[in-house]
Design a protein around this nucleic acid. Structure first.
Lengths: 218, 218
DNA sequence: CGGCTGCTTGAGCTCTATCAACCCCCGTGG
DNA sequence: CCACGGGGGTTGATAGAGCTCAAGCAGCCG
């Protein structure tokens, strides 16, 4: 996965007032579920504040953090646009305020709000790219590299949220123990700093160049 | 990844004569490259006959077979719709005849041929679902399970193409040796049959239930 | 300040990659 | 039509990255 220190994310979208006005305002508390695997929604969501995580569970019980949705992101668009049921479960990582947009059919959205439809298509393109990069990384890279990229990526999504070792591990396919060990090592190298349970990245560039360095030694 | 013995794939699309007429007919030979990582195409492709594979290479040299495109599939739509460069390299697995559709901008496609645009959006949805299922499988499942699902999935894409152990391995993140060992084991169990270098699946249902059986023993 | 949840560290083990050597299928050319 | 060569396939031995299990520690919230 290609990560950068760029705080801006291509999938962010700022609603115009007209579109905003047709959404229904709702909120959920941290830990609650927005939608579950197998459900149909009849629409999609837009996050006004907070952080959502899309999680899937493998048969053996291991969980994967597939995607993260922050402020000004849509969510549940994949299942909405495809007309399929949701393929994973969406949980609130913090308290979340969001808008629900009800549409019986994606074509209705395309007709009335083509710019939103086009944005969602681009978002899918980006999500697919990220997913395939992660797929490639999972075989081609060591855990330590994946952990480094995961913490940069996740901190970029939300710099203030304290990601747990478990969540970081679920994102890059590692156990909490392995994540802990990696962080201990990186702290000794002065590349990160543990602050309570939070992780502070001292210098993204240095951290990344350390990661590249490790990649080339195979 | 959820696999089935269903030969029909949701991403297949049959062109109407009008749209077909604006495509440029081309062909490439087995082993040649349709487009490379980092290139921009200024359009997208449709496969009339043959089989294409989308491959990415990790820093350490290991290759991943990300997606497979068969007859009546579009390809290169992700980069086209997002306006980004290609994120991987597309190689012909067999001789391929295809159409090239030139569009300077995805919005032009949306305006003139909305049904194609909508189809491509749905295709992205499906691709993303598959990619995320594979991501989840990669941590949650054993190699043997992934190999079983890979061979069913790939044989479903093209029942006549003889997938090499290498390609199967690149698809599900395993080495050729591991794929070989898995097939030897499955042949002893009478679940598949080696026919020259080809693999014949004797009974998909039995093979899948064997896979589920293994999953539940953890 | 008590307890719960998350973090840390250690020891051991297992799955699967790696390396190596050989085999065999299949297409080519004589 | 057969011999040959090369690339894919097979099998075995070995090693190590990272998981599992276990036990103790430390933030953090009520």
């Amino acid at each position: 996965m290609k990560v950068s220190q760029n705080t801006q994310d291509i999938n962010c979208f700022y609603l115009n007032d007209e579109f905003k006005s047709i959404g229904t305002l709702r909120s959920i508390k941290k830990g609650q579920t927005l939608y579950s695997k197998g459900e149909a929604q009849g629409g999609f969501f837009y996050i006004l504040s907070g952080l959502m995580g899309l999680v899937d569970i493998a048969p053996n019980g291991s969980e994967s953090l597939l995607r993260v949705f922050g402020q000004n992101y849509f969510t549940a668009y994949r299942s909405f646009l495809s007309g399929e049921v949701c393929n994973a479960t969406s949980t609130a990582l913090t308290d979340v305020n969001y808008l629900f947009f009800e549409f019986s059919d994606p074509l209705e959205l395309l007709k009335k709000y083509p710019s939103v439809y086009v944005h969602l298509t681009k978002t899918l393109c980006h999500d697919l790219k990220i997913a395939e990069e992660r797929l490639n990384d999972l075989t081609g890279k060591r855990v330590i590299n994946r952990i480094i990229e995961a913490i940069i990526f996740l901190k970029n999504k939300d710099p203030h949220y304290i990601w747990t070792r478990r969540e970081i591990g679920e994102f890059c396919s590692a156990t909490t123990e392995t994540v802990t060990r990696a962080f201990s090592k990186l702290e000794k190298l002065n590349l990160i700093k543990k602050d309570g349970r939070d992780i502070l990245i001292i210098d993204v560039e240095k951290l990344l160049s350390y990661s590249y360095e490790l990649e080339s030694q195979v």
